[in-house]
Structures are given as C-alpha cells and as structure tokens.
Simulated assay, not measured.
Amino acid sequence: MDFKKIYILGFVLLAFVVSASAQKVKTAGNPVFKGWYADPEGIIFDNEYWIFPTYSAPYHEQIFMDAFSSKDLVKWKKHKSIIDTTEVKWAKYAMWAPAIIKKDDKYFLFFAANDIQNNEQPGGIGIGIADKPEGPYKDYLGKPLLDKIHNGAQPIDQFIFHDKDGQYYMIYGGWGHCNIVKMKDDFTGFIPYEDGTIFKEITPEGYVEGPFMFIRNGKYYFMWSEGGWGGPHYQVAYAIANSPFGPFKRIGVVLKQDPTVATGAGHHSLIQIPGEDNWYIVYHRRPLGETDANHRVTCVDKLTFDDNGYIQPVKITFEGVKRKEL
C-alpha cells in the first residue's frame, strides 16, 4: 500500500471539502457590519448593494457619514467619511438619516443637520453631490434645501420618492408630522402644487418619523417609525393607498423588537431585487443589554407579503439573510 499517495489523496480531498464548504450559501449575520450605525438607507447601484447609515453617536460627534457596499449581501466593504461637516460649511453637527438617489449619472445624497428646533436656527435638510456612490460628496447647494418648519414637521428624515410618472418627491418630517413636496428637476428647490401650496401633509395615525414609500402592484405603500428612537419600543408601521398623497390609513406594525434578539427595531428602508418580488428590510436595532440610546446597529432581514398584498410581520434574526448576488 502506497501510504504517500493515500496521504496526498486525503489532503486533496480535505482541501476540496474545505473549499466547497467555504463556497456554500452563507448568511450575512446581524448586524451586517461592525460599529454603531442607524437610520440605514439601502439601495442598489450598478449591480451592487449599498447601505448609507447615520453614524450613531452623540450629536457633537455625528459630523460625518460612512457608506457600505456589497456584491452579495454577506460581505460588506466600508467607505469612510463620504461627506462631513468640513465640506458642508453650514452643518455643524448631527448629520443623520441619509437618503440617496441617482439621477443623470450623478449621485445626490440628502441628509439632515443641526437638529434645528425653530425657524431661526441654521440647519435643516441639505444635499451632497458626487460622481460615484462612495463619493466624495460636495455640498450641492451651499445652503440647506429646506431650513424651515412647515405643518409642524421638523425638517429631518427625508426620503426621495421617484413616482412612476417620473416625478421626484421628498417625503420628510419629525415631531409627528410628515410632508410631501414636489421636487424641481435639478433638485434645487420645490414646485408648487396646482392649488399653490408647496407642503402637503400626509401624516398617518401613529407617525413619528422615518418615512419610506414604494410601489407594488400599482399600490402606494407608506411606511414610518413609531415610538421613541432611544427606547425599546421603537417600531415600523405601514399603510396602503392609491396615490402618494394618500389618504394613508394605518394597517399595522411590521417591524418591532424581539426581547430574545434585540430591542428598538426601526427607521428602515427596503431593497427590492430588480425584476423580482424579492424584498429585504434594512433597519437598525439595539443589541440586548445596551442602554445607551446611540448604541444601534444596522441589520438586514427578509420582508414578505401575503396573497392580499399585506406586509407580513418581519422576523428579526441573528442569522440575517442568505447570499444573493445580483
């Protein structure tokens, strides 16, 4: 018996098994990347997944934003400081809740800054512009796009919604009020509605902040966060309407804490696989045992619908989602 050949064959087989095991479908695990990050905006650019989150820290330290990219939802690459307060001169602190859209080969990164409490304070919602999703982003306007409180809505938590007719809208608002505004084509300001108003309120019952809208099977789904962002009962609810203006009647909660997994699950976004009815919810939550309000992590889990088009309650997991290449 040639023990040397047997040894070599065994080594080759072991290497094959290890290699095959490494290539098996894995899950991302939650959180999907290290660090305290919240308010994540998930999106697909050029066959690659991207997440743009808030750097979750005390406001005076919240002066930059990182981004993360992945080709398979499992392995994520960090892109450091894609925008910061040295570039946006009017923003001093509390940069948060990024929203991003690609238009005319440019990337527009919307953000809130300075946590303004009245119409005399400088700050509000601004825009960064870049040639690549990872930036670097430059201040597009040199000033806030929106720096005033309308209909009781603090100018934060903006989401850019691209309607099926091509029109872009910004949906935003904190303090329990949500507005929808019609964007100019170059994103430099707003277009009045036919009745002459600019800020239409679409606040549903229970709304606190974190709006998100999408279309599925011709219906407009509106989602938002409820409760206090620093507490354990933060959650996401939704409504369905025939128009981006509603009326939106609250249907129920789809994302919330699981005392065996994590608390404070909220401020989300969705990723849809192009051409498929395959959806992922990207959100933040607070690990068990954490009491610091800023100790939030970004996670991804599956989101599904029932046969009637209602969103089924999301099961938050430690495992996360399976590998999915585009």
Rank of each mutant, 00 (worst) to 15 (best):
D139R: 05
D139Q: 10
L141R: 03
L141C: 02
L141E: 09
G142A: 11
L146A: 02
D147V: 04
D147L: 02
I149H: 10
I149M: 09
I149Y: 14
N151M: 08
N151D: 09
G152Y: 13
G152A: 08
A153N: 06
A153T: 04
P155S: 04
I156H: 01
D157S: 04
D157C: 10
F161P: 01
D163F: 05
D163Q: 12
D163A: 15
Y168T: 06
M170C: 12
G173Q: 04
G174A: 12
W175Y: 09
W175K: 09
G176W: 10
H177R: 14
K182F: 12
M183K: 13
M183V: 05
M183A: 07
D185S: 15
D185Y: 08
D185F: 05
T188M: 12
G189T: 12
F190H: 11
F190L: 08
F190W: 12
I191A: 04
I191S: 08
I191W: 05
Y193V: 04
Y193S: 00
Y193L: 00
E194W: 03
E194S: 14
E194Q: 10
D195C: 10
G196L: 06
G196T: 06
T197D: 11
I198C: 06
F199D: 03
E201T: 12
E205A: 07
Y207L: 07
Y207F: 15
F214V: 09
R216M: 09
R216T: 01
R216K: 15
N217E: 15
G218P: 01
G218Y: 08
K219M: 14
F222K: 01
W224S: 05
S225Y: 11
G228M: 02
W229M: 02
G230M: 09
G231W: 14
P232N: 13
P232G: 04
P232Q: 09
Y234E: 03
Q235C: 15
V236W: 02
V236R: 00
A237D: 13
Y238R: 01
Y238V: 07
A239Y: 11
I240E: 00
A241W: 06
N242M: 07
P247G: 01
F248G: 00
F248Q: 00
F248S: 00
I251A: 00
I251M: 05
I251V: 12
L255P: 07
L255G: 03
Q257M: 09
D258I: 02
T260C: 00
T260H: 01
T260M: 00
V261M: 00
V261P: 04
A262Y: 02
A262L: 00
T263G: 00
